[in-house]
Design a protein around this nucleic acid. Structure first.
Length: 485
DNA sequence: CTGGGGAGGGGGCCC
DNA sequence: TGGGCCCCCTCCCCA
C-alpha cells in the first residue's frame, strides 16, 4: 500500500530542517552568501553536486563547502527552493539566469522547464513560422511582392534540419534520469509532465527527430536535445508550400493549455511561478500570427539584452583539470568559445534573420549566406554550365535567367536548347546580370535586385537568356521553355 | 529506389 | 567584436 502524501511530507520536513539549519551538512557559498543544505538532497538533485559530493564523500565529518561565482544568490535561492519544494519560481527576469545556473549544476529538469517557459512566453519561431505559412497560403507565384521565400524549393518540412531535434526522446528521458522521487503530485513534476505532454505532442506532429551533428557530441548529456532551431529554420525561409496545419496546431496547443490550466490547482501548481505564463486565446493567436520578422528581431534583441553576463561555464575539463571557459546556449547544449559565436548561434533559436534577399525575399541569418545565395541564384556567380557542368567563361557561355534565378550555359548547351522568342519587355539597362562573377557589396547587389524585380518577376516562369559580354549587360534576351533545370 | 548535385544552414576559426 | 572564409551536414530535386 502506498501513501501518496509520504514523499511530499518527507520533502516538506527536509525543507523545514533546512530552514532551521537542522542536520545541514553542506554550505554553499554564492557570491558571499551562504546557503545551508543537506548533502543527500543536493546529491539527488544535481549532477554537479553528485560529482562534487562523490569526491568528498569520504570526509563526511566535515561539512562540505561549495562556492559559486557564476550565478547570483537570488538565482541559487530559486533553485534551492525548487530542490526542497518542487516549486520553481520563474519569472521573465530570472529565467535565463536560472537556466544558465541549472545548466551549470546539471539539473536537466529545471533546464527543460526554463525552456518551456521561454518557449511559452516568446514562442517566436512558432508564431513566425505560422505567420510565414499563413502568408504562404495566400501568396502565389503571381504575387511578386511576396517573394519566393514563400515558395522555396524546399517543401514545408515536417522534419527539421540537422541541428534541430524535437524533444521526444527528451520527454522520455526526463523521468529516467531525474527526480521522480519528488512525487508526481508535486508541482514541478506536474509542470514537467505538462511540458512533456506539450512538447511531445508537438514533436509527434512535427515529425521525426534529427540526429545531432557528431561534433556537437561534446554536449554534457547525449539525450539533451535541441528543439528550437527547427522552428527557426522553418520560420523564415525553409518553408514554402502552404501548410495551414501549423496554424491550427498553435491553436490546438493553446486550447490544450487552456484545458490543462483548469486542473493545475489540484496538483499544487505554484501560482507565483510563471512556468506556463501565457494562455493564448484564439484572438491572441490571430494577433500573434500577424506578427512580422521585425517582431522576431525585437524579441531576439530582448533575449540578447536579458542574458546574464555569464551564460554558462562548461563542465568540460582540459588536460590540466581546469574548467574551460565557454559560452553555453541557454536553449540547447551547444557551447562556443566566443560570445559573438553564441550570438550568431542564438539566431537559429530565435528565428532572427536580419538579412533579406531583396530579389526573392528569402531571409538569411548571415550576410555571407545572403551573399552566397545572391551570387548563386541571382547573379549566376558560378562559372559552370548548368547543363554540361563544364567551366564557362564570359566568352564561352552566357547567363540564362529564369524568374529571379540566373545560371550559366555554355554556347553549345544553349544552342541545344529550344528557344521560343526573345522577350522585348526586358530592358537591357535593367539587367542585373553582371559579367563578372566578382563579389559585390550587399548594397550594390540590392540596387541591382530592385531593377531585377521590376523586370523579371512579372514572368517568373519565363526563362530568359542573356548574353553577357564583359562589362556590358546582355542585349539579347530569349525566352525558352519553363522549368528547365 | 538510389545516387549525385544544388542550395541552404551552422560551427570553427582567422583577421 | 564583427566580418569573412572554410568546411561539413542536411534536405530536396532530379536523372
Amino acid at each position: 500500500m502506498e501513501i501518496s502524501s509520504h514523499q511530499f511530507h518527507l520533502l516538506e520536513q527536509l525543507n523545514e530542517q533546512r530552514k532551521q539549519d537542522l542536520f545541514c551538512d553542506c554550505n554553499i557559498l554564492v557570491e558571499g552568501k551562504v546557503f545551508k543544505a543537506h548533502r543527500n538532497v543536493l546529491f539527488a538533485s544535481s549532477g554537479y553536486f553528485k560529482m562534487l559530493l562523490s569526491q568528498s564523500s569520504k570526509e563526511t565529518s566535515q561539512p562540505t563547502i561549495a562556492t559559486f561565482e557564476v550565478f547570483s544568490p537570488e538565482t541559487f535561492m530559486v533553485i534551492l527552493d525548487f530542490v526542497y519544494s518542487g516549486k520553481l519560481s520563474l519569472t521573465g527576469q530570472n529565467v535565463i539566469e536560472v537556466m544558465s545556473a541549472a545548466s551549470y549544476l546539471q539539473m536537466t529538469d529545471i533546464l527543460n522547464v526554463c525552456k518551456t517557459f521561454i518557449k511559452s512566453s516568446l514562442d517566436i519561431s512558432e508564431k513566425e513560422k505560422d505567420h510565414y505559412l499563413s502568408l504562404s497560403a495566400k501568396s502565389t507565384n503571381s504575387e511578386p511582392t511576396h517573394p519566393s521565400l514563400y515558395r522555396s524549393r524546399r517543401k514545408a518540412k515536417s522534419n527539421p534540419r540537422r541541428s534541430c531535434s524535437i524533444p521526444d526522446d527528451k520527454a522520455n528521458t526526463v523521468n529516467e534520469n531525474s527526480w521522480s522521487s519528488y512525487g508526481s503530485y508535486l508541482s514541478s513534476e506536474v509542470i514537467l509532465q505538462r511540458a512533456e505532454t506539450q512538447l511531445s505532442k508537438r514533436g509527434r506532429k512535427q515529425g521525426s527527430m534529427r540526429k545531432r551533428r557528431k561534433h556537437l557530441g561534446l554536449a554534457q548529456t547525449r539525450d539533451f536535445v535541441q528543439y528550437k532551431s527547427n522552428k527557426a529554420e522553418r520560420a523564415s525561409g525553409g518553408c514554402s508550400t502552404a501548410d495551414s496545419s501549423h496554424v491550427s496546431r498553435v491553436r490546438e496547443e493553446a486550447e490544450c493549455d487552456a484545458e490543462n490550466a483548469a486542473d493545475r490547482d489540484d496538483y499544487g501548481y505554484n501560482h507565483e511561478s510563471e512556468v506556463m505564463p501565457k494562455r493564448w486565446s484564439v484572438a491572441q493567436l490571430e494577433q500573434e500570427l500577424s506578427r512580422t520578422p521585425e517582431f522576431v528581431e525585437l524579441k531576439a534583441e530582448e533575449l540578447y539584452t536579458s542574458m546574464p553576463t555569464i551564460l554558462g561555464v562548461m563542465s568540460s575539463w582540459n588536460e590540466d583539470d581546469l574548467p574551460r571557459m565557454r559560452f553555453k546556449c541557454p536553449f540547447c547544449t551547444h557551447t562556443v568559445k566566443r560570445r559573438a559565436d553564441l550570438k550568431r548561434h542564438l539566431r537559429c533559436h530565435t528565428g532572427e534573420r536580419p538579412y533579406p534577399c531583396e530579389a526573392c525575399g528569402k531571409r538569411f541569418t548571415r550576410l555571407e549566406h545572403l551573399r552566397n545565395h545572391f551570387q548563386t541564384i541571382h547573379q549566376a556567380g558560378k562559372l559552370i554550365c548548368r547543363k554540361c557542368k563544364r567551366h564557362v567563361t564570359e566568352l564561352t557561355g552566357c547567363v540564362v535567367q529564369q524568374g529571379t534565378r540566373r545560371y550559366r550555359l555554355c554556347h553549345k548547351c544553349l544552342a541545344e536548347t529550344n528557344f521560343d522568342s526573345i522577350p522585348d519587355d526586358l530592358d537591357a539597362e535593367h539587367s542585373p546580370v553582371s559579367s563578372t562573377g566578382n563579389k559585390r557589396s550587399k548594397w550594390a547587389l540590392e540596387e541591382e535586385q530592385k531593377s531585377d524585380e521590376e523586370t523579371v518577376e512579372e514572368e517568373p516562369y519565363n526563362l530568359v537568356v542573356r548574353h553577357v559580354n564583359d562589362d556590358t549587360p546582355a542585349e539579347v534576351d530569349e525566352k525558352v521553355k519553363p522549368n528547365l533545370r
